[in-house]
Design a protein around this nucleic acid. Sequence first.
DNA 1: CCAATATGTGGACTTGAGTCCATTTGTAAC
DNA 2: GTTACAAATGGACTCAAGTCCACATATTGG
Lengths: 216, 216
Amino acid sequence: MQPRSIPLGSISESGSEERHERRDAAANRELLLQTAEVLFAQHGVENVSMADIAQAAGVGKGTLYRRFANKGELCLALMDAQLSDFQEAMLARMRQMVVDGESSMAQLDMFLDALVHFTAVHQPLLCEVQREGLFGNSTHLSLPHFWQHMTVSGLLQTAVLRQEISAELDIAYIADALLAPLKVDLFRFQREVRGFSVERISAGLRSLAASLKQVT
Amino acid sequence: MQPRSIPLGSISESGSEERHERRDAAANRELLLQTAEVLFAQHGVENVSMADIAQAAGVGKGTLYRRFANKGELCLALMDAQLSDFQEAMLARMRQMVVDGESSMAQLDMFLDALVHFTAVHQPLLCEVQREGLFGNSTHLSLPHFWQHMTVSGLLQTAVLRQEISAELDIAYIADALLAPLKVDLFRFQREVRGFSVERISAGLRSLAASLKQVT
DNA sequence: CCAATATGTGGACTTGAGTCCATTTGTAAC
DNA sequence: GTTACAAATGGACTCAAGTCCACATATTGG
């Protein structure tokens, strides 16, 4: 629906230097996304290869790879709308909580809970996104992690200012550490092998965050 | 040196039903390990393919794969001794700390610090081990994680008994969560992209664990 | 409308993981 | 020593990821 092509709603391409994408190419991108969505629904994300998608869409592999450098990018693009919605919803809720005079740590609690549920729902696609890793790969694959880190560390920073948590803490590190258990690998392991419920995971993670609260 | 073949020193094969491994096969296993070690040292772990190793060792791929189901297993085998040593050293230190009347949380602090340094040292090999994931794959690839989880949850459990931390906490979850930031993916990201020092990572993780201490 | 050229396209090709299986070889029992 | 068979072996084969590039096509300025 949206004319934009770069995934992850926020941190938009600030309108300036728009990389030309021919109209037929944009159409192909849509075609590929829709094709992938159907195939994923039919056979499960992990059972569909890039070649499958290209073939089903009736284009060559080169075309597919020109639009999406790998399966992770494709999956991220498929979640673009939901990711934006999620971000927007979170910002709105956090703003409202500020208005209501709720603490930063309460906001963090809410955010983590929402993130756990988001992870649960989008597990299959997130799995592919994270398979590519956080590194040098295509920069924007790590944008979700980047945004989450910004959000969590922002809340923690505010919490320090409001003296809800100790000023001794290494905010940047703690933010990473609180997000680490949500990596899909571990999440799936906990769900499928350990048999943890989503609620249990949420409660556990929030209790860890909550433990930061007391004075150090 | 050791005649054993199954990686991860402890949790040994309890001597009973020893799977036959012919003498020539055992020799080949040694040959392969040594060859891999050399190649890894020369070209870096990630630049050496399984085929390279087989060829350099002068055996077929089938032979290599019969000994090691994948690169991860091979890497784990390469760390077998160091892993056992590490475990033994940890057990010894924890026993001594008990004797010295140190708290369980102090033991956890020591353990996490050691684990961070172990991760830093064995990053490249651990990277391959963890690439295979925690799942159904070869069971014993997750043995390190399994052992670490046992250790951490054991310490936390004792800490609960000694009222060093709240009895409300979900020990099994917290143990996973404290170990999650040590997954090599994130660890490397923190080191290489965020520029965190090993000491900073250790301090951060320990501060997170320490925050569990106060009454909840 | 007509270049000129940046972009897009298809599919062959390369690379590495991992599987398969016909054949060989060590070993243990006799 | 012979035999029988479980274990081991090599390398061809399958499968998916990702690269490359000769050729095709939109777009833009004139």
